[in-house]
Design a binder for these strands. Structure first.
Length: 596
RNA sequence: GCCCCGGUAGCUCAGUUGGAUAGAGCAACUGCCUUCUAAGCAGUAGGUCAUGGGUUCGAAUCCCGUCCGGGGUACCA
């Protein structure tokens, strides 16, 4: 049993026996004792002075005596105001270490027969432009949350819906037809997604110019936006596409293939993957059918101009368009179809959408629409909404080219990692390939950590200079500590010192105690991260753990410790910390180098 | 207008879901490499937790008001 639970329950008995009061276990507050106080675990007794009718000190003292008698790991206690600080015997901590050290899956829960199946949708790119920093946060979060849920005993299906059709790609297609001069990735030397992205920007440039021109001719802004020749041409392409026009489909296929080839490279570099990829072009018709069924069944209504709407005013939402007057689908139409297809393909207990918080309203509507269409699971969908990424220079706008491109960012970080390692004279003993792989791990680790350490729900500032910092609260620091431990363990192996997991008759220093306590926290941290869908909780824990380890490392010698039991204990501590940190960082999708 | 989200050190972020004297990193300054990796460790300085009230033994945390910032409210996605 966990020590916290044991103390809570015994405190509950104490309250009953001493004061004839029946408390809920959840009312009994247990916390780890502050570092500036004596003791390991603290019971907060303020809430019970009403029932004890005694001073906080007296009450704490009485409960303290009770706990000492009933719980043998409680060795002593002290009382400060209403805080009952318990000292836990050293055997308890050594036992915890032994368990953590010997269990390869410490902190990780494997799925059992009745494990929930969770499908997690993330990434979900449009095929009209390359991935940028915003997508990076999405991909890292989606991947990490998948890993964290797996570690909490869920079955996870990672999925990606590729928005491969729609007005956006038609814009790129039109621009390519009009101004492309037959450019291809091969003859331009550009990565496919970047090439297609250029045409999207090209489109917007012309479109904007046309709007300005029309406004000068006396049109209203709205009229100009809908009457500009470019947008009309793109719309026409969309209609042709939905009508299966061979030439349009051909171009669409070609350009999307360019993009996929580019995406594959970027995904690989990011280290993310998917169990199942859906394409909007393959699901939107299912959505359209569902919408038309809704019309037939009177759930939705069709206006004179043929557009289809859902009236959600009763649900406190607005009117929502589901099909345009020209019959083409909008974003949410596709989402309805994709949801239906997914539930046909898999036995899904929970559907999680990793999508930015600007789409909160969209997913509220989606849940209601699915519910109205009679899908029981609709209202249970979970929109994991994360905050936007801001730059010191302001917001990113892909149409205006003010985005941080994913490929450029990664390449730049690898370069800095290489320069920094060379400057520090590290990795000289490694082969070229090993060194290159380590630079990659360091660069990606720094980037992933920088993004995942902040609470996903909040907007975050991406400062390019800080993100490539390798000192302080960074992924690099954690990787470094891991490599450092590995180095010690390697040396121990060479000297034939075995890690003794059952060390006794040793003395534990305060710093070692801090580490032990921190180690026992790991399983709870994994659980909390799962409950809260928060990689940040894991990230911050790993930092705290290695910070503590480095202090220990600085204060104590390990290999040159003369006492064998003491040495073995420190080896076990080191090995356990390394194991936890590796598991924790892997939950963030961060690899750990053995040397750096 | 209406609806969501946020405001903690100069900057970027934590803060165990209401507990003790609010913590890290960066930036600045000062020490520590003949000793297991100095991408490290130790120290100095830095705070009216936006603001005003309320709830109670106790509030950065919960409730109400105000101010500031962001997002949403499209026949864009």
């Amino acid at each position: 049993m966990k020590i916290e639970t044991l103390i809570q329950q015994t405190t509950k008995s104490a309250l009953r026996e001493l004061y004839n009061f029946t408390a809920e276990v959840s009312e009994i507050q247990i916390q780890y004792t502050r570092k500036d106080q004596q003791g390991d675990i603290t019971v907060v007794v303020f809430p019970f002075i009403k029932v004890s009718k005694k001073s906080p000190e007296k009450t704490a003292g009485e409960i303290g005596h009770f706990l000492m008698q009933k719980v043998n790991v409680v060795k002593s206690f002290n009382v400060i105001k209403g805080f009952l600080n318990l000292e836990i015997g050293q055997n308890y901590w050594i036992d915890c270490l032994a368990r953590a050290c010997s269990d390869e899956n410490y902190g990780i829960t494997a799925p059992d027969e009745k494990a929930e199946t969770v499908m997690i949708e993330y990434s979900s790119p449009n095929t009209n432009k390359p991935l940028h920093l915003g997508h990076i946060r999405n991909n890292f979060l989606g991947f990490s949350i998948s890993e964290i849920l797996k570690a909490n005993g869920k079955r996870v299906i990672k999925t990606n819906i590729v928005n491969d059709r729609g007005i956006h790609i038609c814009k790129s297609m039109y621009a390519w037809l009009k101004w492309g001069n037959g450019k291809t990735p091969e003859n331009s030397g550009l990565k496919g997604d970047h090439l297609v992205g250029r045409f999207y920007v090209e489109f917007d440039k012309h479109y904007k110019a046309e709007i300005t021109e029309l406004i000068e001719k006396g049109f209203s802004k709205e009229e100009a936006e809908s009457k500009a020749p470019s947008i009309l041409a793109a719309r026409e392409l969309l209609v042709k596409w939905e009508a299966n026009d061979a030439e349009t489909l051909n171009l669409w296929n070609t350009m999307n293939k360019w993009v996929y080839k580019g995406f594959d490279i970027t995904y690989k570099k990011l280290g993310v993957d998917f169990d199942k990829i859906y394409y909007e072009s393959e699901t939107y018709l299912v959505g359209k059918e569902e919408v038309l069924r809704g019309v037939k069944e009177g759930i939705f209504h069709q206006k004179e101009d043929n557009s289809v709407w859902a009236d959600l005013t009763e649900e406190g939402l607005d009117q929502k368009i589901l099909l345009r007057s020209d019959g083409t689908s909008v974003y949410i139409t596709q989402d309805i179809g994709t949801a239906k297809v997914r539930y046909n393909d898999y036995r899904i207990d929970k559907m999680v959408y990793v999508v930015g918080n600007e789409q909160i309203y969209h997913f509220q509507i989606l849940a209601v629409l699915l519910d109205k269409l009679g899908f029981a699971w609709g209202k249970d969908l979970f929109h994991f909404s994360y905050g936007m990424v801001e730059l010191p220079s302001g917001k990113m706008k892909s149409r205006e080219g003010t985005v941080v491109d994913a490929d450029d960012l990664i390449e730049g970080m690898v370069q800095v990692a290489r320069d920094m390692s060379t400057e520090l004279g590290k990795l000289e003993s490694l082969s070229k390939e090993e060194a290159a792989d380590t630079f990659r791990m360091i660069a990606l680790g720094a980037l992933k950590y920088y993004i995942l350490k902040v609470d996903p729900r909040k907007n975050m500032m991406f400062n390019p200079e800080e993100s490539i910092d390798f000192n302080g609260h960074t992924g690099t620091f954690i990787q470094y500590t891991y490599a450092r431990i590995k180095s010690v363990l390697r040396k121990a192996g060479e000297n034939n010192i075995s890690v003794n997991k059952t060390a006794d008759s040793i003395s534990i220093s305060p710093k070692e105690k801090d580490l032990l306590v921190r180690i026992t926290l790991f399983p709870g941290i994994v659980e909390e991260a799962g409950d809260n869908y928060s990689p940040a909780i894991i990230a911050n824990y790993c930092y705290d753990l290695v910070k503590e380890y480095n202090q220990f490392y600085h204060e104590h010698s390990i290999l040159s410790e003369p006492d064998e039991n003491q040495r073995n204990f420190r080896m076990a501590l080191s090995e356990t910390v390394a194991g936890i940190v590796k598991k924790g960082m892997n939950l963030l999708g961060i690899e750990m180098p053995e040397r750096m």
